[in-house]
Amino acid sequence: MKSYSASPSTFKNYRGYLERLILWSWIFQGKSVLDLVRTDAEAFLAFNKSPPADWVGAAAMRRFTQKEGRLAFNERWRPFGVKVTKADRKRATEHDTKPVVSKKPSAGSEQLIYSVCCSFYDFLLQDGVDIANPFKSIKRIKETRLKRRPKALTTLQWDYLVGEAEAMADEDPKHERTLFIVVALFAMYLRVSDLAGRDNWQPTMGSFERRGDSWWFDVVGKGNKERDITVKDDFIPYLKRYRESLNLSPLPYKGEDTPLLATVHGRSGITARQIRNIVQPVFDRARARMKAEGRKEEECQELMEVTLHWLRHTGATFDAKHRDSKHLQMDLGHESLSTTQDIYYNVINEERAASNRGSIRGR
């Protein structure tokens, strides 16, 4: 697993699934993972679909806790995690009740678990362990590939959201940073980590670079992969506004090392959690304004579920209507063009179908 440590999400998946396999092997089968056979492998895949209740806990529960300055095993941790949605947490806070916990554990994709286990046994073989791969003898699992629907805001919701972000910035200069974050995530299809940075990289004002007539934003993204993103002309006024609030020149200069985001006290760099906390009031204000102006209840309620990642999806969904899919793929940082097409261009198909709902008679 150490070979995947540079990619936190991949490392987390591998660790979680292999940990689950090892525990299941000892506790349920009474044997080492080195002694599993095909029937055991099939039983393990089936086990992931319906684990016992005492193997299920809160998804956010950490494996270890700090105790007297040392790491101690957290007895509340479980191999399967259930999630409390953001909307459920918000409702619980508003009504001063406990949030509703989903009864369905996040078991993970059967295909992904299968692939991880196969990879684990292949590693053992390559490392000189004389062992048969019990998962390899199972016919490769193929799951139905469904069209993915991006979690994105409607045009109306986005208008309210950016409107409230601008109003907050007008009311208090400290929210110029808030407005910049909201528009940057939307306009450049950024992940939160693209603004928060990583262990080996932190974004600066110099990450914006002018090349010819165009502006680009350079990031070290998911999987520590470098990519450059085209910057919309319409985004530049927001960049200027933000920089001027920091008493900087209107536009960045080559090699500028000013941190892209800083705390209100001037400390460079802020975490993803801090970014989420900074933007949450914008979602709350937009929802309150929509309710006050009598907008549809379902559109108001949906803003309780919105996360910052929706802004990335929203920007890409809006732009898919008039951008080449390859160009959109490169700015999003997707490995595969089919990923971009499946997620964002399916929306265009829905609009195409909606435009063809006229009556057959009396057109």
Rank of each mutant, 00 (worst) to 15 (best):
A43E: 15
F80C: 07
S25Q: 05
A320Q: 05
Q157C: 02
P203Y: 10
I138Q: 07
F47P: 01
I343C: 03
K49M: 14
T339P: 10
W201Q: 05
V33W: 14
F208E: 03
T144P: 03
A152L: 08
T144W: 11
W201H: 04
G221K: 03
T307A: 12
S119G: 15
F217E: 02
S338A: 13
V183K: 10
A272N: 12
G30D: 09
G212V: 03
A167F: 05
Q280S: 10
L125N: 12
P99L: 06
K326P: 01
D170G: 00
K67C: 09
G315N: 06
A169C: 08
C118V: 04
E350T: 03
R62E: 15
I22C: 06
G212F: 08
A272K: 12
R148G: 06
A6P: 01
D199C: 00
L124W: 14
L303R: 01
L161K: 01
R198H: 08
G108W: 06
R323F: 13
K240V: 14
T39D: 15
E302P: 00
N356M: 14
V182E: 10
T10D: 13
E293Y: 01
F123S: 12
C118F: 00
H175E: 12
P105R: 02
D96C: 01
Y242L: 02
Y160M: 03
R210P: 10
R70S: 11
A92C: 07
L308G: 05
L308Y: 08
W310G: 03
I22N: 11
V162W: 04
G266P: 06
G266M: 07
R20S: 11
H95L: 14
D218A: 05
T271P: 03
A292N: 10
K174C: 08
L239H: 03
A6C: 02
T204D: 13
T204L: 10
S106Q: 14
D234A: 11
S25T: 06
F47D: 06
K142Y: 13
M205C: 13
D199H: 09
D127V: 00
D257G: 00
